[in-house]
Computed example of a mutant assay.
Amino acid sequence: MPSHTADLRLAARLADAADSITTARFGALDLAVERKPDRTPVTDADTAVEDAVRALLAEERPDDGVAGEERGGTTSAQGRTWVLDPIDGTKNFLRGVPVWATLIALVSDGTPVVGMISAPLLGRRWWASEGEGAWVRDAAGERRISVSGVSAIEDAYLSTTHLGSWTEHHSREAYLALTDACWENRAFGDFWQHCLVAEGAIDIAAEAIVNPWDVAAAQVLVTEAGGRFSDLNGEPRYDQGSALSSNGLLHSVALRLLSDGRTRAAKARHS
Rank of each mutant, 00 (worst) to 15 (best):
A128M: 08
V42N: 05
I204H: 03
A140F: 04
H4D: 05
E173K: 04
A206I: 11
A181D: 04
D88R: 14
R39P: 02
E184F: 11
P62C: 12
D30G: 13
R25I: 09
Y238A: 00
S129N: 04
A152L: 14
E69V: 02
R137H: 08
I87N: 01
G164W: 12
I204R: 01
L106S: 00
N211L: 05
G227R: 02
A48Q: 11
F26I: 07
T263P: 01
G241A: 09
W127S: 01
S242V: 02
R269M: 10
S242F: 03
S20V: 12
D88H: 14
D46P: 04
A24E: 15
R124D: 09
E224D: 11
A55H: 07
R264G: 04
L158V: 15
D7W: 06
V53G: 00
D138M: 04
R95I: 06
A243V: 11
W135H: 07
C195Q: 13
A216N: 05
Y175D: 00
G68H: 02
N185Y: 15
L56V: 07
D180P: 06
L31Q: 12
A243P: 07
F188M: 10
R237G: 02
G73N: 08
A177D: 07
A174G: 07
T47R: 12
D239R: 04
V49D: 01
G141T: 08
L196E: 07
N92H: 10
S20P: 02
G189T: 13
W213G: 00
S230R: 04
A140R: 12
A265K: 09
L232R: 02
G96A: 12
T160F: 01
D51A: 12
A208F: 01
P2V: 09
R25T: 09
C182V: 12
E69H: 05
L176T: 12
D19K: 05
R144K: 14
G115A: 10
S252N: 14
A32D: 14
G200D: 12
T47L: 13
I204Y: 05
E168F: 06
R80T: 03
A32Y: 06
A28P: 07
L29H: 13
A77Q: 10
L14S: 03
R25M: 14
R35V: 08
V253S: 08
G241C: 09
